[in-house]
Amino acid sequence: MQTSTGNKPFSCEVCGSAFSQNSSLKRHMQIHTGEKPYSCEICVSTFSQKAHLKSHMRTHTQEKLYSCEMCGSSFSDNSSLKRHIRTHTGEKSYSCEICGAAFSQTVNLKSHVRTHTGEKPYACEMCASAFSEYSTLKSHMRTHTGDKPYSCEFCGSTFALNVTLKLHLRTHTGEKPYTCEVCALSFSHIFSLKSHMRTHTGEKPYSCKICQSTFSLNCNLKTHMFTHSGEKPYSCEVCGLSFSRKSAVKRHMFTHTGDKPFSCKVCGSAFSLNRNLKSHIRTHTGEKPYSCEVCSTSFSENSSLKRHIRTHTGEKPYSCDICGSTFSQTAHLKSHIQTHSRIGIKC
């Protein structure tokens, strides 16, 4: 169809687009008809335009005809080069009509728009989970296939996601790029920094539905829930004792191995638990951080404060199985038990 549209006399009857040549109109019409007359002899992919087939063939030949004058990077097609150039110029030609955010590529704009619409066009055929981006679907599929294509060059560990590998590599390099603005402590993971910040803010966003106790970390809430369920999922492989915390199993193992990894820098004394080392350090420093609210007496250990509190409350939680006498401390009960063994009679 020929119309008088200035320098573009050929117009599309479907959408009204105008072209200067009839051949251009014919190529354009294939967008509407879905016709793809050009096919790849290697992988049988089909294309609506010959130029697209030529670009595609370079994915097989690895030919990269288009080079960036700024950094020398090469590309198989001109459109990829143009997109790359924007990383140098900072040009962001595509903007969101909803919030005004600007992007250098249309594909990034399309992904962004889905954050507004909630559209998730990419669905998993195995579990029906849906995703807003195809790359996220591909990553998700590995949870079904078990595929772990990313491997650590240091230890050989493999990962399903490249981002997980990058986080893992910091365990080898010691890199800690995330720094606390309050105390300058550094962390290898951003979520570790976020968790740490709660020690400054006092925020405890995770709450127990049973007793309303609150926690700064979700893992601490999960561990706390065992106090309600009585569940002890972590067992000692040596003696079979069970614990509600994994860390408790690790500490318990020292009773079997005799390992004492925590040593005092002042006198060299070694301890199996870090908390025992901390208590020991106070014998050198004289620090007494635990104070009685009744009489202000201070103690170096919390357990000593608890024993002292009983002198005010009169509580005697330890009782003799033989005569029923009660005591405020286990040491007093043990001394009392010996009076039965010496006398050989009941009180």
Rank of each mutant, 00 (worst) to 15 (best):
K8D: 01
L137E: 08
A270Y: 01
Q212F: 14
K232T: 15
S341C: 01
S45F: 14
E119K: 00
T201D: 11
A248D: 15
Y290D: 02
V163M: 08
S111N: 02
H56I: 09
L137D: 06
T285N: 00
C236F: 09
T227Y: 06
S213E: 08
A18F: 05
I322T: 06
T87G: 11
I309F: 05
A270I: 07
T223S: 15
H28L: 07
F131I: 00
K36D: 04
V249L: 10
L167D: 12
S11V: 05
R307Y: 14
S235A: 12
D77N: 14
L333R: 02
S135Q: 10
Y134N: 14
C292S: 08
A128E: 13
H60R: 02
E63M: 07
R27E: 15
S195I: 11
C99G: 03
M253K: 11
E69T: 03
C99E: 05
P9R: 07
T214Y: 00
C124P: 02
T171K: 12
I322H: 03
A123N: 07
F159Q: 04
F154P: 02
I281Y: 03
S195K: 14
S235E: 06
V44C: 12
K346A: 09
R170Y: 01
R251P: 02
N78D: 08
L25Y: 03
K50A: 09
H168N: 04
K194C: 09
S135W: 05
V113F: 00
I337R: 13
N276F: 12
G268S: 05
H88A: 03
S11G: 05
S157T: 12
D147E: 15
F154S: 10
I281K: 04
C323Y: 07
S192I: 04
N302I: 12
P289E: 09
L53K: 12
S93K: 14
E301G: 08
N162D: 01
E35Y: 03
I190C: 10
S304L: 08
S20N: 11
K316W: 02
S48E: 05
G324R: 07
H32L: 11
P261D: 06
T89A: 12
S341W: 06
S129E: 08
L241D: 13
E203C: 00
H224D: 00
T171M: 12
A128D: 11
D77S: 12
L333D: 02
A270C: 08
E293H: 10
R307C: 13
K204L: 04
N220H: 14
T201M: 13
N22V: 13
E293V: 12
C264G: 01
F215W: 03
M1C: 15
T33C: 11
R27V: 13
E181C: 05
C43R: 07
S188N: 10
H28R: 03
K54I: 13
C43T: 05
V294A: 08
C152W: 05
K176H: 06
H116E: 02
E35F: 01
K194R: 15
R170N: 09
H252P: 10
E97Y: 00
T201K: 09
R342E: 13
K232A: 07
T145P: 01
L169C: 04
E91D: 15
C264Q: 01
A101L: 14
K209N: 10
C347V: 12
F215T: 02
G314M: 11
R251S: 15
H84T: 03
G156W: 03
S67V: 07
I281E: 10
